[in-house]
Amino acid sequence: MKALTLGPEGTYSHRAARAVADDIEFTESVTGIVEGVAGGAYDRGVVPIENSIEGSVTESLDALAEWNVSVVQELVTPIRHALIAQRSEFSVVASHAQALAQCRSYLETEYPDARMEAVASTARGVQHAREDPDVAAIGHPDNAGDDLQVLAEDIQDKTSNATRFLVLAPETERTDAGGKSSFVVYPNQNYPGLLLRLLEPFAERDINLSRVESRPSGERLGDYVFHIDVEAGMYEDRTKEAVAELESLAEQGWVRVLGSYDTKHVLY
């Protein structure tokens, strides 16, 4: 099985993907991962979807609304950020934008004069630190290797820092089995109480919503796509009934069922 995730080697996405496949390739675009799976070039894709500190990864949400794929598993992994550099003096901190944000308080307190540089991944930031002694990186402490120093560990603002990753598969592998289900809904209309009406089919059937998020559709200002996660599987009659009602409410647009799946907690 061949999987695609964010690279280069050593990213948190790579660490999560190792729980899915041994044959792993890399790209620096979440959209590229989703497109690669949708086009059949890869059996699996692993994308970050939500962090406990910084919230949802919007590029992942937008890609899931654009391409037809299925979600077959959720991976939850703790995030341990370390400050890594060639030396203790530097003027730039390079890492993924999410990692920089997750360590905001530490960096503002300890290195208020350092310039923050957002790069494609935490592993790419470590590469920059390896190439430039004036650059420090934020990444997993194991990424330091033998040639970089770990100046500080567990620098994330909250010790409970964790990230959810979705394991993607081609649309044909969508399954109804699992304790959670995800949907993307584009109602293609807007009126008072619309979101309430979209969520009522789940509430009326005692289905808990674990996440609801809106993203601009890109069609026009004020027009939105909704991402909904529920704690129920599509194998359940109540979920099927709720989705059928949801599809009726969104008949001017569309409802994409990403599938049902279970959660695996990954430690490394």
Rank of each mutant, 00 (worst) to 15 (best):
L199Y: 09
A162Q: 15
V34W: 00
Y191W: 12
V243T: 05
S105H: 12
W67F: 15
S260R: 05
D147N: 10
Y224A: 05
E173F: 02
E219L: 14
S214N: 06
T109Q: 13
T122F: 00
L4M: 07
T27K: 11
R238K: 13
A97Q: 11
G36Q: 09
V76L: 12
A250W: 03
G10Y: 00
N190G: 05
R220Y: 15
E25S: 14
L107N: 00
E213D: 03
R211F: 09
Y186M: 02
A244R: 13
L61K: 01
S248F: 07
I155L: 11
V46T: 03
K158S: 13
L83W: 02
G39D: 15
L195D: 03
R205D: 07
L198I: 09
E153M: 03
T27E: 11
N68Y: 03
G178R: 04
S91T: 15
R87P: 00
E89Q: 14
I24V: 12
S105C: 11
S52G: 11
A144S: 06
N208C: 06
V255C: 03
L199G: 06
Q189R: 14
V126F: 01
S29E: 13
V92G: 06
D223I: 05
H96Y: 12
E171Q: 13
G39A: 15
A137V: 01
Y191L: 07
A232P: 01
A203M: 10
D176Y: 02
